[in-house]
């Protein structure tokens, strides 16, 4: 695991400093992908997220950790506006993806979700064939020949490290795959649409350790091409697989920084306590 030498400011400590990003580091600079400022979210009267400020760097893996109910999944589901499905959900503040405000009423959520893929806690392949699952997204958005579609399916499955396992049975039902394979299929399905951001909501919590390892390997490969935000309960996973870590507690972002720093020298006592297992 090579962690880039970029130093991103910790918003908890210094507030948001957009200028600092990318220009301060001598090494490979990370561009901001998602910029969040003064973000609040509610479910009905319940204040789920309070005044969040964070910049998620592009083409890096950012892990969100924290005890259950701390709002990390809620935050993730606002990035692709999946919370639109919850009738009582609303949010204020700024949430920008590549400079575009996502909370703007005029935002085309369909277009947004094309650019921000999502992988869910439980693998949710459609009850169709493996091929049709991956082809679902491209068929929605693109006009293309059969050959082009085949190519997209193959490349997506290759990127999701599933091609070798399924290339001979693309027409068999997706539900016949194992849990880990299903989750990789869901990643392939998300990739096939051509997103720049991948949101992963506890993608390994329903999987066995071997499948988890496969998904983590896959994330490491995808890191070069995609901005990945992952919510996880698994502290080891966050420390192994992510470049940056954000610790959230009771709807607030407590600490954000490079994973190594967050896990070895956390600035906040709460983070320290959570990481060492004193609560959570």
């Amino acid at each position: 695991m090579n962690i880039p030498a970029t130093t991103l400011p910790s918003p908890a400590e210094q507030g948001l400093n957009l200028q600092g990003i990318g220009s301060s580091g001598e090494h490979v600079a990370a561009q901001p992908a998602i910029e969040v400022e003064g973000f609040n979210a509610w479910y009905g009267d319940y204040h789920a997220l309070t005044n969040m400020n964070i910049v998620i760097p592009e083409k890096r893996i950012t892990a969100f950790i924290g005890p259950s109910g701390c709002g990390k999944s809620t935050f993730l589901r606002w990035i692709n506006r999946m919370n639109d499905l919850v009738p009582s959900a609303r949010a204020t503040g700024t949430l920008k993806l590549h400079g575009q405000d996502l909370l703007d009423k005029a935002t085309d959520v369909v277009e947004l979700r094309r650019h921000v893929g999502m992988v869910f806690q439980k693998p949710n392949p459609f009850p169709k064939s493996i091929y049709d699952n991956v082809a679902f997204g491209p068929r929605l958005h693109l006009r293309m020949s059969r050959g082009e579609l085949n190519q997209i399916v193959e490349q997506s499955l290759r990127r999701a490290a599933l091609w070798e396992e399924v290339k001979d049975r693309l027409k068999s039902p997706a539900l016949s795959l194992s849990g880990g394979q299903q989750q990789r299929l869901c990643i392939a399905r998300a990739i096939a649409v051509g997103p720049s951001v991948l949101l992963m909501d506890e993608p390994c919590s329903a999987l066995d350790p071997r499948s988890t390892a496969a998904i983590e390997d896959l994330m490491a490969q995808l890191r070069n091409d995609y901005t990945i935000a992952i919510v996880t309960h698994n502290m080891q996973q966050a420390s192994r697989a992510s470049d940056y870590s954000a610790f959230m507690y009771q709807g607030e972002l407590i600490e954000f920084g490079q994973t190594e720093q967050v896990f070895t020298m956390p600035k906040s006592e709460q983070t320290q306590n959570y990481i060492t297992g004193r609560f959570g």
Binding site: L140, H141, L142, R143, I152, Q155
Partner: peptide, 10 residues
């Protein structure tokens, strides 16, 4: 965006 999908957008 990774140069994956080809074809014209609908």
């Amino acid at each position: 965006p990774p140069a994956l999908p080809q074809g014209k957008p609908k």
